[in-house]
Design a binder for these strands. Structure first.
Lengths: 143, 143
DNA sequence: TATTGTTATACTCTATAACTATA
DNA sequence: TATAGTTATAGAGTATAACAATA
């Protein structure tokens, strides 16, 4: 009927793979901690960087402003972070993990590091380099 | 603050990469043809396999039944496919591309093949093998 | 006027489950 | 009763844009 084969098409294979890994990881934390992927990203970023504004997270974490903002609202409601007004620029909101948020992240870190280890094992010996090579797909050849 | 680094975490990198490639490809067709990713997958599968049921597509294309069903409904409304009742088993629905659907797929194929070529070029010489190696991430080590 | 963050809109996705009609 | 497909539901993702407050 056609000479196009969806199964060899890289965007499709990549989407299927990313979905599979994301769901698998999500099984490791979503039920236990009750957070979504967006919330996980915000918490992980805050944990690594310390307090940050919505805009900073938006730029660092591949999520647009509104998604970050809504995730932060949910996390605040759950007592995992606080919002403060920036002392000099009133437009900025300073997001900080609470003690509860820090404690959750500590557990999550263990889960995430264990999963990362398992993924690297699946890749085999040159896993890191292999994966980095595939990430060249994201670099548009603008030359 | 923490020894966890989101930027080196494989599920995150994979999600970011897949999103980037998917959006980039989508820019090549969504505006021009007015279809979503789910619709594109259904059309591509039908084009490769010939007429198929909802269930067949569901099993082959990493989308659940309802997503396939809804995509098919939208495509039917746009005149890109038809639904027929199966002659012997009335529960089955036979989805077939219309002439309009075939014509669209012909154009889409050109776009997709060109994009695939560009992606392989970004990967470099051993691209296919490198990519296949990374797909081992999707194979849970169930031993 | 421009920027930061929030909220609105509308559609799609995801997961689950109920529902219908056939078998 | 089991199966194929559709529809419902509810929360989340996606993209865009309007909006309020501040700069």
């Amino acid at each position: 009927m056609s000479d196009f084969d969806l199964d060899s098409f890289i965007p499709y294979r990549l989407a299927v793979l990313a979905g599979k890994v994301s769901r698998e990881f999500s099984n490791h934390y979503s039920e236990r901690f009750g957070i979504s992927r967006a919330e996980w990203r915000v918490v992980a970023h805050l944990s690594a960087s310390g307090p940050a504004s919505v805009g900073e997270i938006h730029q660092r974490v591949d999520m647009d402003k509104s998604r970050v903002s809504r995730a932060a609202t949910r996390l605040e409601k759950d007592g995992l972070l606080t919002k403060e007004e920036h002392p000099v620029d009133g437009r900025l909101v300073k997001l900080s993990l609470t003690a509860l948020g820090e404690a959750m992240m500590l557990e999550l870190e263990g889960v995430a590091n264990a999963y990362q280890t398992e993924l690297l094992a699946r890749l085999g010996s040159d896993g890191e380099e292999t994966f980095a090579a595939v990430e060249r797909l994201g670099k548009a050849a603008d030359a």
